[in-house]
């Protein structure tokens, strides 16, 4: 059965793809904020990454610890094949649902 991602999960997955090897919680938050203009809580990013990791759509490894992080290590994230597949399925579903619809000027 195909798995789909929620809207914020898609944003997080896309941010991971954009950031590549340098993707960790705060860089994901900055990327989403910079590209969408949305004020994102870091807690929401981590909760989403944790959920995606639990579903096997994201993998993580421990990164570097720096002084400005209070000596705490980063947790680096990478999308897995399952995650990419779910992202693709979700994007296709939205594209199919949007096909032929003109939202601009549509009012109730």
């Amino acid at each position: 059965m195909k798995e789909y991602l929620g809207e914020f999960e898609q944003l997080v997955m896309l941010a991971l793809l954009r950031l590549g090897d340098s993707a960790y919680g705060m860089s994901v938050r900055r990327e989403i904020e910079a590209r969408t203009g949305r004020d994102i809580a870091i807690g929401a990013v981590y909760a989403t990454l944790d959920r995606l990791e639990g579903k096997g759509m994201v993998a993580s490894k421990t990164g570097e610890a720096t002084e400005d992080r209070g000596g705490r290590a980063k947790r680096m994230f990478l999308p897995t094949a399952a995650g990419l597949s779910a992202l693709q399925a979700s994007r296709e579903a939205v594209a199919r649902m949007s096909q032929g619809l003109e939202l601009e000027g549509l009012v109730w």
Binding site: M26, I42, Y46, R69, G70, R75
Partner: peptide, 19 residues
């Protein structure tokens, strides 16, 4: 915060706070 992400999260917050 959930235990498995606590330290990374605190590190991220600290980093942004300094910035």
């Amino acid at each position: 915060a959930p235990a498995d992400m606590r330290e990374a999260l605190l590190g991220d917050l600290c980093e942004e706070f300094v910035l």
